[in-house]
């Protein structure tokens, strides 16, 4: 069997992390291909529901990233997000959901190298943890249909 290739979905803010990931590209730094980026305006927009939806779409890991505190394009979206994530993360942990599979990071528009590092370490971590079958097994047969888009 070929090596397990983790599936990672990343939710990033437009102004810092998305631009930071652009910089990784312009600097031609290489990183693992496993990540798929979904652009949001700000971490403040990143609903906890999206993280759940990523797992139910079969993600083995999720990255959530935006501007460093103080740098949010909208001044405070990331502060609100930080609180929400703290509560959400506690909740997931309480329910026994593997919080190690959600990587929260601050990556600025200048941190191209950090973006590569965030992706690479997340991919490595998830590779070590293996496929998230525990969660995916919750999606029984026939359930697919109910995720109407």
């Amino acid at each position: 069997m070929s090596e397990f290739e983790p599936k990672i979905i990343a939710f990033v803010c437009n102004w810092c992390t998305y631009a930071g990931a652009d910089l990784t590209g312009t600097s031609r730094m290489k990183y693992a291909h496993n990540v798929r980026v979904i652009r949001t305006p700000c971490t403040g927009r990143i609903d906890y529901m999206l993280i759940l939806k990523a797992f139910s779409a079969g993600a083995d890991g999720v990255i959530v990233s935006g501007c460093h505190p103080g740098d949010c394009h909208y001044t405070s979206g990331n502060y609100h997000a930080r609180r929400r994530w703290m509560v959400f993360r506690s909740l997931l942990d309480f329910l026994g959901i593997d919080v190690e599979r959600v990587r929260f990071a601050w990556v600025s528009a200048a941190e191209g190298a950090k973006w590569a590092e965030v992706v690479n370490t997340t991919v490595a971590d998830i590779r070590r943890l293996g496929p998230y079958t525990e969660y995916q097994n919750l999606i029984g047969r026939g359930v697919e249909r109910s995720f109407q888009v």
Partner: peptide, 20 residues
């Protein structure tokens, strides 16, 4: 619905998402 964030039927994933 539009989108249907939480599946309505009583199955494991929908129940978990509802309770979260």
């Amino acid at each position: 619905n539009q989108p249907q964030w939480i599946p309505v039927a009583a199955h494991s994933i929908g129940n978990l998402e509802w309770h979260i």
